[in-house]
Design a protein around this nucleic acid. Structure first.
Lengths: 228, 228
DNA sequence: CTCTTTTTGTGGTATTTGCAACGGACATTT
DNA sequence: AAATGTCCGTTGCAAATACCACAAAAAGAG
C-alpha cells in the first residue's frame, strides 16, 4: 500500500487531524512507520513482549486476549479497522504487556514508532536553550494527547456504569451518559450487546427494562427508548 | 507559598520528573500557574463549566461528585494531596464537564494552564518550517503523556475487574493484576476498602474469601494472602 | 409473499449477592 | 483492668441475578 493510500485511511482518525498529505509522508519516514499483514488467528504481539510501537488497524479486526495460568483465554477487547491500539502501553513505558494481540481476520496494521516524536530533535542542550521541532510533530503530539484524554474519559464513563451494583442503576447510568439531555434516543446496541456492555445477563436485562416500563420510569420499543 | 515551596511539593509527581527547580520557576510563569485556597465544602469547579486548567492538589483532599436530575449527589472519586486532576477533561477539549469538584477539607490547589505547553511557541509557520520549544517543555509533554497513559492502564485494569460477573472472579482478577507473579502478598486494602474497590458487599466478600479458602484455592489471614 | 434466522420477551428455578445484626479478636485509651 | 472502637467473620433471610428453555416478534433471504 502506498503512503498516499495509507494517508487516505488514517486521515479521518483524530490522531491525524490537521495533518496534510505531504506532512504525513514526511512523518512516515521520521517515525519509522511500516505496514505489516497478518492472517487470521496469527499472533500480532505476544504477552510479555514490550509494546514499543503504536498500532493502527488499516483493515480487518484484531482482539486483545489474556490467558490465565491454567491456559484459559478471555477476550479483553476487540478493535476494528481504523482504530488505534497500544498507545497507553507504549507511553506508560515501564509496564509489561500482559495481553496477547491476535488477528481476528486477515488484517493489515500500520506500526508507528511514537516514541520518536519525543526525541526526534536529538540536539538537546542544557537549559535555557531551546530545541527545534517540526510544526506537524507538535500537531501530532497535541492530537495524541487529545486521543488519550478522550479515551480516558470514555473508560471512566464505563467504569462509572460498572460500579453500579444493580442492573437498574447500570441501565440508568448508561442511559444518562449516552442520551445527554435528550429524552428520546436510539440505543447503539441490540439487547445482547447492551447486556455485554453492562456486564449483565441478557434476559435479566430484558426483564429489568420491562419492569422499569411497568413502573413508568421509561418507555421503549426495541432500540428506541424514552425517559419518562 | 513560594515557587520553591511549591516545587518541593510537586517534584515527586511523575508529571514533573526530570524538571529542575529553575526550570520549574520558568514554567510557573510560562504556564500561568497560580495557587488558590479553598475551604472545606467549597465548590472548586461547578458542573457545566469548562475545564481549561489542570489541577494539582498541594494539600488537603477533594472529591469529584455528580448530581442526577433529581438532586441526588454521588461521589465519583476522591483525590488526595499531591495528586493531579482534570487533565483528561482539559485535553479532551470539546467535552463538557458534568461533574462538580468540591473541597473535602481546607485545601490548596495549584492550577496549571497546560494548553499553553502546546502553543507557547506562537511563531508557527507553514510546513516545513520548524518551531522552537524549550527542552523542559518537551520533558513536560513527555511526562504528561506518560501520566495519562499510566492512568489509562490503571482504569483499564479496574474495568477488567468490574467486568467480571461474580465476586469470585472479581477477587481472582484483582489478585492477579495486583500480585504479579508473587504467590504471597499483602493486600493494600482492608476488607471494607477491598469491597468498595470491587464494588461488592463487604460481608459477601468475606463469605466468598472463606469459601475459597475452604476449597483450597487461596489461603489468607487478614491482609496477608496466598494463592495455592 | 414464504421461509428462515435472529432478536426479544417470558417463565420457572437455582444460585448468588445484599442486607442487617451480632460476637469475637485485637488494639488503644482511660 | 475496664471500657471503647475497629475490623473481620458469621448467620439467617430477602432480594437480585443468572441460567435455561421456549415462544413471539422482527428482520432478512429467496
Amino acid at each position: 500500500m502506498s503512503v498516499l493510500h495509507i494517508y487516505e485511511k488514517v486521515k479521518k482518525h483524530p490522531l491525524f487531524e490537521d495533518i496534510l498529505p505531504n506532512e504525513f509522508a514526511e512523518m512516515y519516514d521520521c517515525l519509522s512507520m511500516y505496514t505489516a499483514i497478518y492472517s487470521k488467528n496469527e499472533v500480532i504481539l505476544l504477552a510479555g513482549e514490550l509494546m514499543k510501537l503504536v498500532g493502527f488497524v488499516l483493515s480487518g479486526n484484531i482482539k486483545i486476549t489474556r490467558e490465565d495460568e491454567y491456559g484459559k483465554t478471555t477476550i479483553v477487547s476487540e478493535i476494528s479497522a481504523l482504530r488505534l491500539f497500544g498507545e497507553a502501553h507504549a507511553y506508560a513505558g515501564v509496564q509489561q504487556n500482559t495481553a496477547t494481540i491476535v488477528a481476528s481476520d486477515d488484517c493489515e496494521i500500520l506500526w508507528i514508532n511514537y516514541a520518536k516524536i519525543l526525541t526526534c530533535a536529538p540536539d538537546i542542550c542544557p537549559f535555557p536553550t531551546k530545541i527545534e521541532i517540526c510544526t506537524f510533530h507538535m500537531q501530532l503530539l497535541k492530537n495524541m494527547l487529545r486521543v488519550m484524554a478522550t479515551k480516558n474519559l470514555l473508560i471512566n464513563q464505563k467504569n462509572e456504569i460498572l460500579s453500579k451494583r444493580s442492573i437498574r442503576e447500570k441501565i440508568l447510568c448508561f442511559f444518562n451518559t449516552y442520551r445527554g439531555s435528550e429524552k428520546k434516543f436510539v440505543a447503539p446496541f441490540n439487547r445482547e450487546e447492551m447486556a455485554d456492555y453492562l456486564c449483565v445477563d441478557r434476559s435479566a436485562l430484558s426483564k429489568e427494562l420491562v419492569k422499569m416500563r411497568n413502573e413508568r420510569i421509561i418507555n421503549f420499543k426495541l432500540k428506541e427508548f424514552e425517559i419518562l
